[in-house]
Design a protein around this nucleic acid. Structure first.
Lengths: 344, 344
DNA sequence: CTGTTAGCGCGTTCAC
DNA sequence: GTGAACGCGCTAACAG
């Protein structure tokens, strides 16, 4: 009835050995190199082990082999919808190779991230840092002690997988230009985010290519609230199109704009990034889609490769993105969009 | 230039001891019982350790102390928006006590969950299972070997934290009844989900209390697509209100219904569960809100308590929920809502 | 095929 | 205040 957990020291190999009347090594082999023993011996040992309730002790095994089958995955914010699919994919990829994964939440802070890495490093074979907020120096420091891969962070010499949103952003701008838009505002994301830097650069270059005038409005953190907060700036900019750092921000902008009686996409077109909302919003959001799950899978896969053969060199996998046109983009309106129709 | 990682065996206590010209024990104490040594000695050792790049080896420490400061957290689906906030909160709570957390994704499968638990159990001090798909028998089995807490799973004798959505569901039904609705359809979630069982029961009892007629429509998995898929069934039911297992499903239903020209909430009212979308949708979703993050935090906190003092007994923490009225609920329309206005 | 021996790195009695 | 031994549970050479 009462759970008798936490007590009686877990049975060890010695217990099994005694019960099965063999030596400890034999028990060990039964678990790690079965084909080196008599089939019947193995079966008997496994059976006894089961009865005794024996479970191999990872820590002990790790101590003698140096390998414990653990990896660490660190992200800035588990709750940001961009990461869960990535985490999930990385998790399952690791699982395929029987690896356990430590999850770390840096809370967008490099200090916290550094602390976590420090704590993980002694009990993992490798690390995967997603959108790391760490300085290049710290990253190199850690990479020198353990195999380490980066996701959405571009540092020469460190294996990494990048989601190249410049392609999708460019497509988005071409799309908007096609629709006749001439004035765009880019609502930026976190300054320390590589993705943000890349997207902003893509916007700049797209502006030249398509002869668009672009204003940059800063949203400190990527969120629905941030989106709503920058709506006044957007409306004041005289622009007819908006490209937001991510879908959350885009959605905040969308409802904020609608609340002011300005129609989307009738008067202002909006494009998001990441495609984390699917077609779920109304109107459904036009966005730059990527496969963050694939980034997670590939990153973990790369890490596992490093663990098995120490030769990956300066690997750099680049994933592409593409524009998904839904219902928040439309031709540029004839009149300035800053006032609700009929107003003034 | 070239990272020389993965090679030179990490420095050990012996290295530090030699470099600092003290014994290994002293180094050990410098890290675990500083107040037992001369202040200057400690400082010197710590400094040397830093220079040498020494990091305590968790595995080795675990082997001799039996404690390694790791816990496991297992969820059905990392990518389901209900879980990330919970994971994040649990993660940070564990972090406060310097615990590392293994994350497991059971992929909604009890087999996978069992495999993960089995793999984790030997290297964690305790486990937290969220919305476990495991049989009661298996859970008890695992709970007998390690401290274990449940979140959103109700098993007598196992410490657990429950989100009681029956309160919120009841409020939702009262709200709908107030608006004049008499026919409701409940779109269910996974059969193995405790939350679903609880919500369905609450709907049943609410139906009696408020004299509503309720139809149950099954959505195998909770998702946007599932929601869209059941729209025909909903429309065929003659109901004027819908309560969905979760917000994802609710949103799918919402857009599916809108696509057919039926207005929400004009002709049909919709209520979701979990409040994972905020006010982001349009119209914004009326939903039963809970604090999944608090559940995660409390669950982890409970687990840590168990680890520090073996006496928590049959703890059972129940979190309440409340209805958040937004814009998808409105008075029951006068005419049957199955056809678009003006049609036929 | 199987038993024996020797550490893996660290915490912890003991003596000094 | 500090150093010297032993053992945590297991794997990896070695024998036999």
């Amino acid at each position: 009835m009462a759970d008798k957990n936490t007590d009686r020291p877990a049975p060890t190999m010695a217990d099994v050995a005694r019960a099965a009347d063999v030596s400890k090594s034999t028990v060990s082999r039964a678990f790690t190199q079965p084909n080196m023993l008599g089939v019947e011996t193995v079966d008997r040992i496994l059976e006894v082990a089961r009865l005794v309730g024996y479970v191999p002790n990872h820590a002990a095994r790790a101590l003698s082999t140096g390998r414990h089958g653990n990896v660490a995955l660190v992200v800035p914010d588990v709750a940001n919808p961009f990461f869960p699919p990535l985490i999930r994919a990385a998790q399952m990829e690791a699982d395929r190779s029987n690896f356990c994964v430590f999850l770390g939440n840096s809370d967008e802070s490099w200090r916290q991230e550094d602390k976590l890495v420090e704590r993980f490093v002694s009990q993992v074979e490798g690390l995967a840092l997603v959108a790391s907020r760490l300085s290049e120096e710290r990253i190199r420091h850690h990479a020198a002690k353990r195999p380490l891969v980066l996701i959405n962070r571009d540092i020469r010499g460190i294996p990494r997988v990048l989601i190249d949103s410049s392609i999708g952003v460019n497509d988005a701008m071409a799309h908007l230009a096609d629709l006749g838009h001439e004035r765009l505002v880019y609502v930026s994301g976190p300054a320390s985010s590589w993705a943000n830097q890349q997207r902003r650069a893509a916007v700049r270059s797209g502006a030249k290519a398509y002869h668009m005038e672009v204003t940059i409005v800063a949203a400190k953190v990527p969120s629905y609230e941030s989106g709503r907060a920058v709506v006044p700036d957007i409306l004041a900019s005289n622009a007819t199109a908006v490209l937001a750092f991510d879908d959350l921000t885009a959605q905040g902008i969308m409802t904020g704009i609608a609340d002011r009686g300005v129609s989307v996409p009738g008067q202002i077109s909006i494009v998001g990034c990441d495609d984390v909302l699917g077609a779920a919003t109304y109107p459904s959001l036009t966005t730059v889609s990527n496969r963050s799950d694939e980034a997670g899978r590939a990153g973990m896969s790369l890490l596992l490769d490093m663990l098995n053969s120490r030769a990956v060199g300066d690997a750099c996998l680049v994933l592409d993105t593409h524009l998904v046109v839904r219902n928040t983009t439309a031709p540029k309106p004839n009149r300035a969009p800053r006032r609700p129709a009929g107003a003034d």
